[in-house]
Design a protein around this nucleic acid. Sequence first.
RNA 1: GGCGACAUAGCCAAGUGGUAAGGCAGAGGUCUGCAAAAUCUCCAUCCCCGGUUCAAAUCCGGGUGUCGCCUCCA
Length: 461
Amino acid sequence: MKIYNSKTRTKEEFIPLEPGKLKLYACGPTVYNYFHIGNARSFIFFDVVRRYFEYLGYDVTYAQNITDIDDKIIEQSISEGKEFSKIADKYVQAFLDDCEALGIKAPTHQPKATDTMPQIIELIHNLQLKGFAYEVNGDVYFDTGALPEYGSLSGKQIEDQLVGARVAENIAKKHPADFTLWKASKPGEPSWQSPWGMGRPGWHTECVVMSRHYLGETFDIHGGGVDLIFPHHENENAQAMALSGKPLARYWMHNGFLNVDGEKMSKSLKNFFTARDILQEYDAEDIRHFFLSKHYRSPIDFTRELMEESHKAMQNLRKSITAFGYDALLETDIPDMEILKLEQSFQAAMDDDFNTAKAIAVIFDLSHKSRSSILDLDIRKQAAAMILKLGKVLGLFSKPTHENSEVTEKLTASLIELFLSYRAQARTDKNWALSDKIRDDLQNLGIDIKDGPEGSKWSLK
RNA sequence: GGCGACAUAGCCAAGUGGUAAGGCAGAGGUCUGCAAAAUCUCCAUCCCCGGUUCAAAUCCGGGUGUCGCCUCCA
């Protein structure tokens, strides 16, 4: 398998640290608001990475942080007039709910920053002891000048950055690139006791603590959106290098943005739609198809038209499945060589840096096979079963959508009403033979009809 | 100013040396009382210029355009 490593900017052969095991970390949300559909791209993509490795038989440990203390949460707590922990709790729950609705499997570990405070403080303290951190008036900064490798992940020459950098002047820092590890709190702000007084952690430390705790000093894959390469991941890696001389992760994967009118969707630009809202409009799996039909590193424009296209494409595939029945396909063996060959094509696509667009094309090939009138019914059924098997790797067709749902129930009711309206017409026409036939036929299907002054009523036996 | 990405049919999108996957839309055939559905078939020479090569969408150089990071951000 080949994975594009942001650090080396090349596709590299993936070799796990331990054969058969994958240690994966992807950055989670800061819970000061509902996450938007652009954030969802990242969560969905790394969910697919996890699912694919599991499909390959790997034992996957997937950790994701939840940042439940930071400046934005404090701001939000002021604007909503609630305690910061109430805000955090509310949006943590919303995050978990929305992820579930998007068909994202819960990570193996999903720690919160506030539950990791002693370890965060310990790590910062260790950095200080090793001479990579310094304190100024209760703030603690990472000393980037002390680490020659600083900038190696993002490929930034720190000196080059100074000219045009829009970094606010901070006289306390030895170097403008130095970043906050610990921030002294102002009165009234949430704070924790530390060797440097009351304060709270900077953003970049928690991920280092959590990932190392759950995955080891160095783990396989670290992921997130491209905007995290610098400074977030650079700063995470710097801390790991400073502590042990070893990189935090071996492969760094970064997904591209979701754009709106050619511009990055972002909370600061206020051009976003929350995942929550979009889920009201579209099926979660249609949303997943929308993202996965493009390569994860490319930017994607978000438009309703494209969402509609994804919906239609998915409906098309769903028909191939419902033609045979969801449950029946789950139990179908797939010995056919041609179809197994297509599974290999799917794997080859996924092995090539998660080419989900190509992988989906293979699923459409299977769909054609499943409907081709020149093939045996058994082969067609196997093709449909393979759609289900491979779709699950992408988090598609994970449930028998539109089969036994409320939709069906509503439809049944409307259909019965429809028959009753025909029968009413027949009665008006005094066509008793037809009217009685409709009643008897419905009764044979288990539907009782009772005529009354206000018309006919039906009930299930 | 530094670093980086991208540019393929009406739209979306794969494709890193050998004459362009797939989806949506569109056209035609079959089927059909009509319509729909289904099914089969068709629909691009890859932003521009120059170079390397027997051969380039794919490599190199130069343009043009779009976007991103360097500040919280998936």
